[in-house]
Write a protein that binds this DNA or RNA. Structure first.
Lengths: 221, 221
DNA sequence: GTCTATACACCGATAGAC
DNA sequence: GTCTATCGGTGTATAGAC
């Protein structure tokens, strides 16, 4: 999603002290798209919350769809980068999954918009043009393939039960994305926000429990 | 959602041979809202797909919001009714959960719109008026409380591990709703639609496996 | 880069004929 | 019950001044 890079001010610098308009727009749009979905957000609302005129948005992003894609790709890239940060290559499969789950939970907890944004993006259809959609699909695919490889490896070595890999991946996504996207329902259930530190930790342990008891062939108590 | 019941033709009769306009509208709107969400669907699209003029919809439902609520309530009521069909009261907790999961998977498989419709409704906010929202909340609550009671009972009797009840419910919802709502992602993973009979059965077994290995204190192989 | 003004399609909803 | 016609508002997007 290189929709235009006006002035290209900070080459490679991370989090400049004064965020550019482009970044302010992305941050605002991310929160709004996560809360209300693509068609539930108007450019007017975005512009008002950013503090710019409506038409100024079109200087930075040529259309609403392009803005949406930019938001989604930025989040997905950050997300994937975090997964790769963890030095994980030489861990045994289940330990690798543990590390990933920890990282994913941390990421979703630090960016409360991500879970809803990513979940919604799986339901949204035919918004992006072919090119943008392919970039997005590739990012999702890179997440799935990492999981897939770890499971496959573990099953081959006997560390993991011979479960259905796709169904297990679906479950893992549901356990993480859905939980942090569940909003009011989750809050009603837990008695407090899913983003409370205590609940975040509980979620981590809950998923760990799943990994150890459903997947592992020799469960540890 | 009693927005009006013109003529009230078939009192209590189930699935009349010739569906009323009201029912055709509900069916069409259900599919559309599930696919594109509340703000992604216009009354124009609904009316065209039903085969009526746009303004005829407003004879049957006083507003778009009321139509949405009617769709959601109808689905939720059907859903809850199916859960209650199963004679389940005197089963031990884990067996009761098994039976429910079977029923839920069957229901979601028979009504491909439901998973997305219900999942989306958890993200949609402040659409219905206070009265309608309360009806919807009550229906969700009745599902959650059934699950909650079964888990609590099982933990008390020692049949189920002392897991976090809210987190377990979240996981169960994620495993069912998310899976059948996942659309293209699920299809890419499985290699075929999540609604293929073979995949439906696999899903049932996958959740059963979870119930037996994560929840049960003495897992059966 | 940001603004004002504007084009034009579509939205939800209503009025009134049949 | 369904239609046509129409209202006011909002949607995305563009033109052009500064």
């Amino acid at each position: 999603m290189s929709d235009r890079s006006p002035s290209d001010e900070e080459s490679g610098a991370s989090t400049p002290a004064t965020p550019s308009s482009r970044e302010k727009i992305l941050d605002t749009a991310e929160a709004l798209f996560a809360r209300s979905g693509f068609s539930g957000v108007g450019m007017r609302t975005v512009s008002e919350q950013v503090g710019l005129g409506k038409s100024s948005l079109f200087y930075h992003f040529s259309s609403k769809v392009k803005l949406y894609c930019a938001v989604l790709e930025r989040a997905l890239e950050d997300f994937v980068a975090r997964l790769d940060e963890a030095r994980v290559q030489d861990m045994p499969p289940v330990e690798r999954l543990h590390t990933w789950v920890d990282g994913v939970v941390t990421a979703l907890a630090e960016h409360p918009s991500w879970a809803r944004l990513l979940l919604r993006s799986l339901f949204e259809e035919d918004i992006a043009d072919e090119h943008d959609q392919q970039r997005i699909d590739t990012l999702f695919e890179s997440i799935v393939s990492r999981l897939s490889r770890a499971l496959e490896e573990g099953i081959r070595s006997g560390e993991i039960r011979p479960v259905s890999i796709p169904h297990t991946i679906q479950t893992l996504i549901g356990m993480t994305l859905f939980h942090f996207a569940s909003g009011d329902l989750g809050e009603d259930l837990l008695g407090e926000s899913v983003f409370e530190p205590k609940q975040i930790q509980l979620r981590r342990e809950h998923i760990r429990h799943y990994l150890d008891h459903v997947l592992r062939t020799s469960p540890r108590t």
